[in-house]
Amino acid sequence: MQAFTRLTGVAAPIDLANVDTDRVIPARFLRKPQGSAGYERYLFHDVRFAADDSERPEFVLNQAAYRGATILVAAENFGCGSSREAAVWALMAYGVRCVIAPSLGDIFHQNCLKNGLLPVILAVDVVADLRGQLHARPGATLTADLQTQTVTAPDGAAHRFEIEAFARQMLLTGQDEIALTLGYEPQIRDFETRHAAAMPWLLLR
């Protein structure tokens, strides 16, 4: 997994609440291998491109100032719906490494953490203010710093965010989570023996 420490980049505002992962990447692209050629075009495909493949000028990432944004500042419940991790893969393929929102879909939130994309939860009024600044100053940059757990807004204000210690550590080091867990093998084996003895109906074969 790619580590995440600190990022300064152009941020794009996404004002709509409840942006679902079907919108982030439509189902018909889920058969495309992660990272295959053109993967970044699947991101927000049906709201980003018209039927003839031309860009829809009203979509935020098609506007010159926000093009190539590496941070999204979204609204409530961004990434709700389907568990498709391809939503995160498409964001990463485009270059997005941080999503800031008042809340995120629970599974999407986990998927971000497993891929080195920093999910930042801030109060709803703070996030609304950030989006307001990005609208007022298109192309403005934000800084997300995982070491200090702060987001620095275009106006210079620093906002502290909370993140679970475990997730923070994994992101900072970019550690392979499976390798970490395999270090718990003795505990897993002990548990397995006790569990099967206490609840023999759990065995299937």
Binding site: S83, E85, D106, Q110, N111, K114, I178, T181, L182, I188
Partner: peptide, 21 residues
């Protein structure tokens, strides 16, 4: 429900890291 990375983790370890909701 879990994501693809978590599926891989369960396949490999039969466990999952979670924070209690």
């Amino acid at each position: 429900g879990i994501g693809s990375s978590e599926v891989e983790h369960v396949l490999a370890t039969q466990t999952l890291w979670q924070r209690k909701p």
